[in-house]
Design a protein around this nucleic acid. Structure first.
Lengths: 201, 201
DNA sequence: CAATTAGGGTACGTAAAGTACCCTATGGGT
DNA sequence: ACCCATAGGGTACTTTACGTACCCTAATTG
């Protein structure tokens, strides 16, 4: 029909992934049924199950197409503004339809650590952590934060709290006031606190 | 058969909830099917659907039976030990089979804020927050922490981070080293940092 | 002692995942 | 240039489980 006859290998795989991503875009992960993906890709379920063991695995694989978000690390000159900007960007992603897909995928992959790891990789999770570490590094270079502030737990804290908000509330977006509270009441005080020679131990 | 004839109202409702809780205990939320609950309760699906609109609502309602965990707020004399003990207790709960049920329920209720709120209530979430606030209050009274440390965001932080660990990893238990890291590298420094008159703004 | 309401039994509709065959195009090896 | 193992395509089927629809009957209420 198309000049190109029967697709094979990578070409077919691409078509399937694209179809799955489109389905998720239109109807979310819940709406992505295997039959619809197969029809949309112009193939059948056999070809899918030969590549992925189940729906969740396909969804995770297809999510990469959805999450093309390459992030630029903000560099405003102050740690506070940098942090707020990065948080706001993450919040925008999470509250978008794509964020809903991501959350459904997280739930679906929840009992399969391997799949979960793959998903987090494709969702740009390590990229995000690195961005926060960069932020902190710059703040230290400016003398705005003590060197002890550069720590993975500190770096991942704002995103963890943001995710926590989504877990506590339902779907709607997290209000901006919460973001500033996370930064002003927790993140920045923590950065300061790690500078103080604590009697904490 | 039983002397008592046909059950009605609260008696029947109790039987259904008990049956649902038992099913979840044995096979998790995924294994709790409506038919099995009905059979176990010695009734039929009609009686269930007359009371709860869907499986998720029943699961949430039944979870209360599972989460009989009345917690005693630790009082060891130091903030650090109190925090570690409370965290460890929460970790034990989350890594138990009951914790798996809770996580599945959270996922199932994820798109229904109302149901989510109910679940969090039955899971003893506010009780937990209050425990942390009590902890902090005692530390302030001992002069171990500045008054500014008593803040809802600070109080909820350790639990949020613990939950984050479960989201990042798969199912297994969170190792104790992570708990001490949360306390020593984040929680206590934050408490100290909120005491310092920050130039952070 | 009606009459209404709630339970019980059962069967059905529907949706979707995953599986089983069987036929056929394709492309690599000889 | 030809074979043949392999991967695609088409389709039908099995299974599981949610949610509904009826219809009969026991309890409860006035």
């Amino acid at each position: 029909m198309d000049g190109t006859g029967r697709r094979r290998g990578a070409a077919l795989e691409d078509a399937i992934l694209r179809a799955a991503a489109d389905e998720m875009r239109e109807a979310g992960y819940a709406g992505m049924t295997m039959d619809k993906v197969a029809r949309r890709a112009g193939t059948n379920k056999n070809a899918i199950y030969r590549r992925w063991p189940n729906r969740a695995a396909l969804g995770v694989a297809a999510y990469r197409q959805l999450a093309r978000a390459q992030m630029t690390v903000p560099d405003t000159g102050t740690l506070r503004a940098d942090a707020l900007e990065l948080l706001a960007k993450a919040n925008a992603t999470w509250s978008s339809p794509q964020g809903a897909v991501l959350r459904d995928l997280l739930a679906a992959a929840g009992d399969d650590p391997q799949l979960l790891g793959l998903l987090r990789e494709q969702a740009g999770d390590t990229t995000m952590d690195n961005a926060w570490l960069t932020l902190l590094g710059r703040a230290v270079a400016r003398g705005e934060a003590p060197p002890e502030a550069v720590h993975p737990r500190v770096a991942s804290l704002p995103m963890t709290m943001l995710r926590g908000e989504y877990a506590v509330r339902g779907l709607p977006s997290v209000p901006g006031a919460v973001l500033t509270e996370i930064v002003d009441e927790v993140f920045l005080p923590l950065v300061r606190g790690r500078g103080a020679t604590g009697p904490g131990r």
